[in-house]
């Protein structure tokens, strides 16, 4: 995921290590979806993961893809939360909502189960459990924890305590890519070339 780079403690913006938005270094499903149909959102740097929505007690409900995005590359931190899930009619990923992060709070709900709590200013809240290959769950969840810490304490970036080093690994995303038809693969390659994963740099996560 790190493409041979090692994350370091967050420093000044210019010094911060930047990593691709997606674990494989290529655009995630959400970013590809936006690229296809949402012209206005397609160039946003996005950090995204696949989750399942769970009840407070951990019972599994439905699949959700959650991402955070910056509406401008000049921003130090993401300012939007994106939620997507399978469309009822065909199961294809569909964007459900775009929410300014100033009206959303992210919490760790249960670290041992890789669960986050998402709470809107309106009081509405729900729980999401990260869905990723077992060997990368902790690492990916750690990125979300670091993100929510930064969102909560934006001025304390220099003292972010997430400093562990991650080995560079090659692994495949656990999503539906395996089922792609040759045409879809070709479309994906074209899209990847257009998106250029390096543009999807994150906020030192």
């Amino acid at each position: 995921m790190k493409r041979g780079r090692t994350p370091k403690p967050a420093q000044g913006r210019a010094e911060r290590t930047l990593v691709p938005a997606c674990p494989t270094g290529r655009p995630g499903r959400l970013q590809r979806h936006l690229s296809g149909e949402f012209d206005q959102l397609r160039d946003f740097p996005i950090f995204e993961s696949n989750f399942v929505q769970v009840t407070r007690l951990g019972e599994v409900a439905n699949k959700v893809t959650m991402g955070v995005a910056a509406s401008s590359p000049a921003l130090e931190l993401p300012d939007l939360l994106l939620l997507a899930g399978p469309a009822k009619e065909n199961g294809h990923l569909q964007l459900f909502g775009l929410f300014p992060l100033q009206f959303v709070q992210l919490f760790v709900h249960d670290e041992s189960r890789w669960q986050l709590k998402v709470k809107f200013r309106t009081g509405r809240a729900f729980y999401l459990q990260l869905r990723a290959p077992r060997e990368t769950l902790d690492r990916e969840f750690g990125q979300w924890v670091r993100l929510l810490y930064r969102l909560r304490f934006p001025s304390a970036q220099g003292s972010v305590p997430f400093t562990q080093e991650y080995p560079a690994q090659d692994w495949e995303e656990q999503d539906d890519d395996e089922d792609l038809t040759p045409e879809e693969e070709e479309e994906l390659r074209t899209m990847e070339a257009r998106l250029n994963p390096q543009a999807s740099e994150l906020w030192g996560l």
Binding site: F96, G97, L98, F99, V104, R121, T122, R124
Partner: peptide, 11 residues
């Protein structure tokens, strides 16, 4: 219906 914050999408 919950108050909408931001944008919700339909198709």
């Amino acid at each position: 219906h919950d108050l909408t914050i931001g944008v919700e999408f339909g198709a």
